[in-house]
Design a protein around this nucleic acid. Structure first.
Length: 636
RNA sequence: GCCUCGGUGGCUUAGUGGCUAUAGCGGCGGACUUGUAAUCCGCAGGUCGGGGGUUCGACUCCCCUCCGAGGCUCCA
């Protein structure tokens, strides 16, 4: 689908833009056809004037992705103009809208500082006040090259274009080579903030010159900007690195950058995630294996990792032979497959592995639990016949859906197709890709296609989790693989008594337990649902005379596998409650004279509700109910 | 790996122009025996990430290095 936007200057409002698809739908007439044809042929026509005559067109507002993009793109130009005013020697590269705002890459002799950002912001404000008209002008390629002759980046881009006519946008003293569309004037951009400066390579290639990328965010009004800034603040509060420390879940050390240490409480959660995973996979017909961490060079040569993945691997020597620490689990699993002749009756063969892998990631990419150098994949390999692809994929999609729903995650699905450096025949790719598509369609899953983004050995489906703040994280993946079975000469004996080659699926649901834990910490803001909570309840006493009874309660809960702490210090109640709250313990149980007398406890939940006179048996029963339901709500 | 910024007791943090470095929380000791978000008093704890240099003198200035943050590239 082609989507082209341009501003509708008939409506004097910043929010208005228009989608040509809508034009086509609404008028379906020659006008739209002409416009689309012109675009496809890269003939630039001035669409504004023609379309103005039709008033029935849909208006795109800031609420639409299209409108947002136009608005943010114009914000980028606004920033560029301000930069030009302040730093006339800066050369502009590209300045698009991105999902979370906009940026402009510039080439400037001196590094800009956060102070400069403040200056640029004030300059932008001036330009907004001046409400400068933004005008489109279509010029010849020659003329464009003349206009941008001092700018090597724009020159390069213009030369790459096949069009003979080039559109430019002019606002005051600043002219940019740009397809548009833009808001009609700078005065429309009422609220913005420049957020950060970073290095970025020209055209995203590390071999090219590194430019300075200035990021910003903008909105049509202050209110929206403020709520966005609030969201950022909330995200910062939930940062798993901060909460991980505060809640005593894990730590990082200079002695092992990228290698997380999990404390007792973090380990509790990880073990629960693993237990849950095992139970569900047994139900889904998986077996589980364990393969070694260090394996001989020969294996990695055969799998292709030695040639294609070496820079990401760690090595060691044993008795003068080269060994590698596994960066992936599949070669080990394949050796198990090959321990005997396999029959078609065994297929599909679903083999899981909680496989810990080590990857030498670049130091600059490490980030808390989100990007580490040692992590455990909830891996599984499914060996199957070609005709089983669709059903197996459906099975994995169902399982994945069940997992994500359990944690309250929404998710998006992406399908990646054949890349340029692919191995295997076109037919095989087509079949495999069709298998993935069929499965997604059968499940009525909406998905986005990433052309050419598949692995070299097969197409894949990726699952992107959406957390409660709307941020997305790549976790699960389903990858079809025809390469490994080939390389390891995997076979099975068919009904016909002949040898056949199985197809392999690599798949994960959590992705990495470490990353998943990081996401969970931020998703729940550290307030884990009862079933995941490292400490499920804490017992507080009013004074020393209640300790004995408190110990009795503790024992009862422990005997029912409830993770319980006590705080019998001679501190005041408010203080002990406060500390328990800060630790985000779901249930605070208090014992005082009344409870000792009635043989009950008082229960306080994290949201501050208090229930008195709860019998311990009832408490245990209720807690077990909530734990079993995996609910994040606690009510008595 | 590259770019920019940062690193002060367990945590959060003050600090200066180059002289014996703040405070709170936490910890420990004591008093208080407390009914749902911080009781009071006292004590201990830092070679200011590490190494080198400039200097009479460096937490402060310079260089190197390690680690972290945000990006780029990559990715579970």
């Amino acid at each position: 689908m082609i989507k082209i936007k341009f501003p509708d200057s008939s409506v004097d409002d910043y929010e208005k833009g228009i989608s040509i698809i809508d034009v086509a739908k609404k008028i379906g007439k020659k006008l739209a056809d002409d416009a689309i044809a012109a675009r496809l042929n890269n003939e630039l026509v001035d669409l504004n004037t023609k379309i103005n005559k039709d008033s029935k067109l849909r208006i795109i507002t800031f609420k639409d992705d299209d409108g947002k993009e136009v608005f943010r793109h114009s914000s980028s130009h606004l920033m560029a103009q301000a930069i030009k005013n302040l730093f006339p020697k800066a050369k502009f590269a590209i300045g698009p809208a991105v999902e979370d705002g906009f940026y402009y890459d510039i080439d400037y002799e001196k590094s800009l500082t956060p102070d400069d950002l403040v200056k640029i912001e004030s300059e932008m404000k001036k330009i907004v006040e001046d409400n400068i008209k933004i005008e489109r002008e279509v010029v010849s390629k020659e003329r464009a090259l003349e206009i941008f002759k001092d700018n090597p980046y724009k020159t390069e881009l213009i030369k790459e274009l096949e069009d003979e006519k080039i559109s430019t946008y002019k606002q005051g003293n600043f002219t940019d080579f740009c397809r548009g569309p833009h808001v009609p004037s700078t005065g429309k951009i009422k609220a913005f903030k420049l957020t950060k400066i970073a290095g970025a390579y020209w055209k995203g290639d590390a071999k090219n010159k590194q430019l300075q990328r200035l990021y910003g965010i903008s909105f049509p009004d202050k209110k929206q900007l403020n709520s966005y800034l609030k969201l950022l603040e909330e995200a910062e509060k939930r940062d798993h690195r901060k909460l991980g420390k505060e809640l005593d879940l894990f730590s990082m050390h200079d002695e092992g950058p990228g290698f997380p240490f999990f404390h007792p409480k973090g380990t509790v959660i990880i073990n629960i995630l693993k237990d849950f995973w095992r139970k569900e996979h047994v139900k889904a017909g998986y077996t589980e294996v364990i393969t070694p961490m260090i394996l001989n060079r020969n294996l990695w040569e055969q799998s292709g990792h030695w040639d294609h993945y070496k820079e990401n691997m760690y090595f060691t020597k044993i008795d003068d032979q080269d060994y590698a620490i596994k960066p992936m689990n599949c070669p080990g699993g394949i050796l198990i497959y090959k321990t005997k002749l396999r029959s078609y009756r065994e297929l599909p063969m679903r083999v899981g592995e909680m496989g810990t892998v080590h990857r030498h990631e670049l130091s600059g990419v490490l980030a808390g639990l989100f990007r580490v150098r040692c992590f455990t994949q909830d891996d599984a390999h499914i060996y199957m016949a070609e005709e089983q692809i669709k059903d197996e994929i459906i099975g994995v999609i169902n399982l994945t859906d069940h997992f994500y729903k359990t944690f309250g995650f929404d998710y998006k699905v992406e399908l990646s197709t054949k890349p340029d450096n692919a191995m295997g025949s076109d037919q095989a790719w087509e079949k495999a890709t069709a298998g993935l598509k069929d499965a997604l369609d059968a499940k009525k899953v909406k998905y986005k296609i990433n052309e050419g983004d598949g692995a070299f050995y097969g197409p894949k489906i990726d699952f992107h989790l959406k957390d409660c703040l709307g941020r997305t994280w790549q976790c699960g993946t389903i990858q079809l693989d025809f390469a490994m079975p080939e390389k390891f000469n995997l076979t099975y004996e068919g009904k016909d008594g002949k040898k056949h080659r199985p197809i392999m699926i690599h798949r994960t649901i959590y992705g990495s337990i470490e990353r998943f834990l990081g996401i969970l910490i931020e998703h729940y803001a550290g307030k884990f649902p009862l079933w995941l909570s490292p400490t499920q309840a804490i017992i507080l006493n009013i004074n020393d005379s209640h300790i004995k009874y408190g110990e009795e309660i503790k024992k009862k809960l422990e005997q029912n596998n409830i993770r319980i702490e006590t705080d019998f210090r001679a501190e005041t109640m408010p203080k002990k409650v406060r500390e328990a709250q800060l630790k985000k313990i779901p249930l605070i149980l208090t014992v005082g004279d009344k409870e000792v007398k009635n043989k009950t406890v008082a229960v306080r939940t994290l949201d501050g509700k208090i229930y008195f006179d709860i019998k311990p048996e009832n408490l245990i029963k209720k807690m077990q109910e909530i734990i079993n339901s995996k609910s994040s709500e606690i009510r008595f």
